[in-house]
Amino acid sequence: MNREKLTLRDYLLMALISVVFGVFYLLAVYAGTALSTLLTPFGLGVLGYEPFYGVWFMAAIITTYLIRKPVVGIITEVIAALIEVMLGNMFGVIVMLSAFIQGLGVELPFAFTKYEKYSYKVTMTAAVSATVVTFLWTGFRSNYLAMDWRIVAAIFVIRLLSSLFFTGYLSKRICDKLDEAGILTYLNPGGANE
């Protein structure tokens, strides 16, 4: 495990990637709102955001892969939330708590491998653990107990699929490509983290 302290460059990378995803998130928010509106008359509006849920974990998993130090995932999500709030996210400070939980969910599997393995197996596990952890949290926040179990199950399944796609697959593919492009030497001088 790389126990070196986070450097200024690490923090900057986390913050910059958060801003990039801020733009991307906005896309997801628009798509989600549109879908929610469509589904509202059927009472299925709550499902609108679920297909895009995995997008919210992408920044954390990408920075974890790029920096390879502990707590990077959590810090990234918190920074991303702060930046979103500053740019006008409507859920304000509570998203910081959500962010912490999302980051934790993404990061757990990496912690178990001591931040040494970055295979599809680990990223897919991260997708699952992020889904489970955030499901518990949004369940508390939106009081899933007050909803029909079938809709709650639908929330879970759709979120899981979205997370597997965006977090487990897409993020890993982007990162592998970055590695292949040879630009990560800048982050790991001497290739100590191969």
Binding site: T33, S36, T37, L39, T40, P41, F42, G43, L44, G45, V46, G48, G88, M90, S142, L145, A146, M147, D148, W149, R150, I151
Partner: peptide
Amino acid sequence: RFLLPILLISASYFFTGWLFHSEEN
């Protein structure tokens, strides 16, 4: 401008809670 989407989401939760409530609850 901010309130509009919020009311929308709030409405969608209303319909979900109304049409798809859980029995025990």
